[in-house]
Amino acid sequence: MRLVGIAVVIFIAAPLVIVVPMSFSDARSLQFPPPGYWLGYYQAYFTDVSWLRPTWNSIIIAAATTVLTMALVVPACFALVRHRFKGKSIADLMMLMPLAVPHIVIAVGYYSFLGDLRLVHTHLGVVLAHTCLSVPIAFLVLSANLKGFDRNLERAAQSLGASPVQTFLHVTLPILRPGLVISALFAFIQSFDETVVAIFISGRDAETLPRKMFDSIRQEADPVIAVISTLLFVAVLLAVIAPFAWRGIRSRFARTALPAPSPAGR
């Protein structure tokens, strides 16, 4: 049983182990084990506009997608989790629809639909398409959070003198913050990762990083791909570790920041 577990871990981790040394390789194409080591491909990545432009595109598109997604999902979550109304179950279903439809089908659909609107090959077109794909994921994460939210906390706040707006700002929002951050992060990653729709819609002007990587691997197996993969891996690792580190620092800080209790209180 334990051996199976170890085998699974190795199988999952292997691509990471291979890709990191390959990024430092001096071979002309992707090759493992690397014949020698240098940082040339890192230099190549950070100086080559044909790589930096898609990276920048991806970041802009993912950020815009996240903002748009959250603007739609937060009110939708409150409405669908907290209220009962006619057609609620249909609305619930529609929110999750994009998860059920194959990406390639969605991509073809958007290609013709956005084509009519002259939005193909634009940033806006990719953002709109990605938002449709991010909404169900962000919705799932946030609505699970909201369902677990004890509404007595809001009632308590109101009984203690907080107006509805104050209640939202001082109680609802801070308690939901982890859920909001995670669902926004998922929306961002979804867009940053997305390849199929990007290949169809992004074109040359709004080319995203995954699309550029796909093109590049098809044509020349450029080791810069290994560099990007390594960088993304490090970024994800930091994103996972950061909240824990932040929480540790903050709780220590919050405690010392309070004024010392009065002598009478001791």
């Binding site: 308590a156 009984s159 003198g161 801070p174 405690r255």
Partner: peptide, 29 residues
């Protein structure tokens, strides 16, 4: 409205704000 009534309530599950310390909870009103 509830917040204008000046009534103190203790709920069955206490409904303490989890993101605030005890003294901050009491300071809230």
């Amino acid at each position: 409205a509830p917040h204008e009534r000046n009534i103190g309530i203790v709920f069955q599950n206490y409904a303490l704000f989890p993101h605030k310390t005890a003294v901050e909870n009491v300071y809230f009103p």
